[in-house]
Structures are given as C-alpha cells and as structure tokens.
C-alpha cells in the first residue's frame, strides 16, 4: 500500500444526493409530459392558435396594460412613500390612509368597483369646467388601468419607503449641507441609492402585474386570457387555448426577468461586492 503523502490520489467528492435528486425530477417531468401527450389535448390546435390575430392583440393588450399600470403604480408609490415619510402630518396621514385602503380591498373587487362606478356617479368631471358620462369614460381599458395601477401604488409605496429608509442618514445630511432642498436631495442622492433595494421587489411586483392583468378580463378588457376565452367559447378547445395563453405568460415573464437582472446591475454601480457572489 502506498502511504507516501506526496503521492496520494485525490478522489473528488461524490454528490450521490444530487444524482438521485436529478433522476427523480427527470422522472417526474417525463411522467407529466407523457400525461399531456396521451391526454385529450390536440397539440396541433395549440400550434395553430399560438399566433392568431386575436391572441396577438390580447398579448399586446396584456403587455401594454402591465406596463401602464406598473408605471402608474410606481408614480403613485414614489409619491405616497415620500408623503408617508414627510414631517408634514397632513401628507403622512393621507399617505397612510391611501395605503391602508387600497391594500385592504381585493384587486378583483376594485376592478369591478371602478368598472361599475357609473352606478354611484352617473357623471364625473370638474364641476363647472368639464364633465363626462361615467359609462362612456369608464371603458374596460380605463377601469383596468385605474384598478390595477392604484392598488399597485399602495404596495409599491411600501417597497419605496423601505428603500428610502435603507439609505444612511449621513447621506441626507451631506446633501442638506450642500444646500439641496428636500426634493432635490431625494431625486439626486437618496432615490438612486434606494433603487438598489427597490428594484428587486419591484421587478417581482411587475411580474405579478403581468399575471394580474388576467383579472381585467372580468371588466371585458381584451387581454390575452380574455382573447383565449373568446376563442374557446366558439370552438370549445378549452385546454388548448389555455395552454396558448400560458405559453405567452411564460415568454413575457422570462423576458422581464432578464431585463430585471440588467437594471439591478446598473444600480449596483459604485458598490463593492466580493467577486465570489
């Protein structure tokens, strides 16, 4: 037997657990694929409807609505987060009330409330200047945008507030010492640093928003799920069309995740991280 300490053979550690785990996962995947292949699914329909006009329009509506509702949510979120942290009690209490109310009511219910606003207020507008019939103004698009965007603002406000609080007090003081006003220092110094904390959860919320848009089908907004439904009401290919919709959600969310990584990297600049992260 060779016991010369300079001539010992290194045997890499064996990861038996991983091998077994991978085998089990592959097995489960194969079973699921098999089930779908032998199941009552006409895959040719899935392929055929994947890119039809109605679905494409629905997809476009989903993407546009997700972006607009998220932009509205972000704008409201930043505004109310800053108000919530204000020394002015009127502002901070108002923000608290907004966050409390719109976080408490389920999104589906909010969408229905906006859509049916005409039942409460037959006309809306600025008294003496302009007014519209609520039924005309509250289109599915507007109802979906308000319902999704305003509730998103309440959640985003809390995310932004956490971000603002994560920035060191010394940064506020250094900026104040330069003679910056509160809005200047928030915009130039505090927000850019808070973004590091804000971006990951907001990316997460954006992905949530893409899926939340599917709820807007209840107010007749023609997003991708609504489009799929309108087709299967006609041809009864329910599962096939649901799979078409699922495919597109997967694609959109995948693209968003990639963009999120880029944005995070941008806001990491100036921050030293150990290379082994």
């Amino acid at each position: 037997m060779n016991t010369d300490p300079d001539n010992l053979v290194i045997v890499p550690r064996r990861h038996y657990g991983r091998l077994i785990g991978a085998a089990l996962v592959l097995l489960a995947l194969a079973a699921i694929v098999h089930a779908f292949v032998v199941g009552q699914i006409e895959w040719s329909y899935v392929g055929r409807f994947l890119t039809v006009r109605t679905i494409m329009e629905g997809l476009a509506n989903t993407i546009v609505m997700a972006i607009l509702a998220m932009v509205l949510g972000l704008a409201l979120g930043v505004l109310f987060a800053i108000m919530r942290l204000s020394a002015n009690p009127v502002l901070s209490t108002t923000a608290l009330g907004y966050i409390w109310f719109f976080r408490a009511i389920p999104v589906l219910l909010q969408l229905l409330l906006w859509y049916n606003l005409a039942l409460v207020f037959p006309t809306i507008g600025i008294p003496g200047i302009a007014s519209w019939k609520t039924v005309d103004a509250m289109t599915p698009f507007v109802a979906a945008l308000l319902g999704l965007g305003i509730q998103q603002g309440a959640f985003t406000a809390e995310v932004v507030r956490a971000g603002l609080l994560s920035v060191d007090q010394g940064q506020y003081e250094a900026a104040q010492t330069l003679g910056m006003t509160r809005l200047q220092l928030l915009r130039r110094i505090i927000m850019p640093q808070a973004m590091r904390v804000i971006v990951p959860p907001v990316g997460n919320e954006f992905i949530g928003m893409v899926k939340l848009t599917s709820l807007a089908s209840v107010v007749q907004f023609a997003e991708v799920l609504h489009s799929a439904q309108s087709i299967y009401y006609a041809n009864s290919r329910v599962i096939e069309l649901l799979l078409v919709a699922a495919f597109w959600y997967l694609i959109v969310v995948t693209v968003l995740s990639l963009i999120q990584g880029r944005v995070e990297a941008y806001f990491e600049r100036g921050v030293a991280r150990s290379p082994g992260r």
Binding site: G170, Q171, A174, T177, G179, I189, P192, G270, V271
Partner: peptide, 18 residues
C-alpha cells in the same frame, strides 16, 4: 446652508457617484 461646508467623521460621500 450653501455658504457653510461640513466635513463629517464618516465622510458621507455619495457612493453611487464618482
């Protein structure tokens, strides 16, 4: 405050700026 500069114990440079 503009005409009064302050140097802090912990520097307080803005980390996201060069």
């Amino acid at each position: 405050r503009r005409s009064i500069g302050m140097v802090f114990q912990r520097f307080n440079l803005f980390p996201h700026l060069t």
